[in-house]
Design a protein around this nucleic acid. Structure first.
Lengths: 250, 250
DNA sequence: ACAAAAGTGTTCTTGATACACCCATGG
DNA sequence: CCATGGGTGTATCAAGAACACTTTTGT
């Protein structure tokens, strides 16, 4: 029941006073991932005040009175990174965290989002983006609030999404090699993949990637130049590309 | 950033007045499904007041100051159905809907949940459960607020979850036949399945179901009595049980 | 005897896995 | 010429799809 009052079930609070209750603050928290140099990185900000002063935290902020959580998330992402209109940037709602004690100051309900950032563009620093920084996912100590859990949930979600969607291209620049795409999978999953099979799988999925006609690029300085690809129009991946040795994940 | 104020990014509102903003109401909405007599049914309540007076709506209500959204959802479910401690009942967070105009009276952010109810126990009526009723999913007209969308999202989620979890047993009574389990899949997905293959698939997944030793039951009055099964301990389904002709779902 | 529902077996095809192997480029 | 990374081919195996068939009950 959405209605705050006068709901047809008799359990909603009586009266219709907007201010009758201790107010809830509604915020968004963002788990922004990127893959750079073969490592998984997360965008974090350092807290200046108590509680958790000096700790790292997920970027985020209030949902303003006239915007949805999605709009707030996009706005915050732009403010933290200083980047607007990143092509191929993916942002999706993760879940909502509402435990009463999660912020010691007041009741804060946060809608968490997971975002995939392509490599390269403007990591941090410039402009009004205060001190947002990319940190290695594996080297992240305890975060403020319940952000460790949010980050873990986001990581699991991103890993799962790579299996059955074409989302991995959101981690890549507009043009990329199949080796780079494979590195995205290997970095997020933390497991090596068989190159020939990965290649077949990707190319056999219509609309996953499309080749840039004549282009080629040298990847590591050495070796044969690799063909370049762009993201195709497909979003789903059928059949899925499963993580190796996947037993009993809920 | 969870902090309402003094956050390390400069974008959070200044000051630390809990009442400085138009307050957000936080509610939960429940999409409760069951499979009865080969049809998919949804628990709905009829609204008594404006807006949307006389329309059907998802059951739900406020998140109280000292409970999480999950606790509120369990409480509302118990209140609407009059049932507590239903074994095998499954409830999970779906997503949060926060568009500013979704309730015309005030700003209401709702955390939506999807629940699977086993067949049979206490449909409605008794006790304080006002007028919650089971309606056929296929015969549901336009609902109040944005509940059509929430219900559609919940249905899609439930359908997807049947593919890769053992969740279907949550639709069944404690003891059930494989034919009944198959009917759950067919009802939710709306597609017929091959019985021999379904059977093999279910039995080949360790921990999905376990047979009740000597028991058997006559299903439709005629035919061979079917063996009875209980839900096993497993939660995940590897490899998944995919919907037929599944092309291009995001 | 027949219908209806449970349960078993078999074939065919697809997709995943694990390799071996060739190609192009820089040092 | 060799190390490095890109790209191709192939044999093997497990899983899913389709369907024929048997068994047990009620009418």
């Amino acid at each position: 029941m959405t209605a705050p009052v006068g709901a047809s079930n008799g359990n909603a609070p009586e009266g219709y006073d907007k201010y009758a209750y201790e107010p809830f603050a509604v915020t968004v928290d963002l788990a922004v991932f990127t893959v750079r140099a073969g490592t998984l990185q997360v965008l974090l900000v350092e807290r200046g005040q108590e509680p958790y002063a000096g700790r790292w935290a997920l970027p985020g902020g209030f949902v303003l009175p006239d915007e949805s959580a999605e709009e707030a998330a996009w706005r915050e992402l732009a403010e933290e990174t200083g980047v607007t209109d990143v092509p191929g940037l993916h942002l999706e709602q993760l879940r909502t965290y509402s435990e009463p004690g999660r912020d010691p100051r007041m009741r804060v309900v946060t809608v968490a989002f997971a975002a995939l950032f392509p490599d390269a563009p403007v990591p941090h620093g410039g402009g009004d983006a205060a001190q947002a920084q990319w940190l290695r996912f594996n080297a992240i100590g305890p975060l403020a609030f319940d952000h460790d859990r949010i980050l873990a949930d986001a990581h699991e979600r991103v890993g799962a999404k790579l299996e059955y969607t074409c989302l991995a291209t959101s981690f890549c620049p507009p043009e990329f090699t199949l080796g780079e795409l494979q590195q995205v999978y290997e970095t997020v999953w933390g497991t090596p993949l068989d190159r020939p099979n990965f290649r077949r799988k990707v190319l056999a999925t219509p609309g996953f990637v499309e080749q840039v006609p004549g282009a080629a690029r040298l990847t590591g300085g050495r070796g044969k130049p690799a063909a370049l690809y762009r993201a195709g129009g497909a979003t789903a991946l059928h059949p899925p590309l499963l993580r190796p040795t996947t037993e009993g994940r809920p």
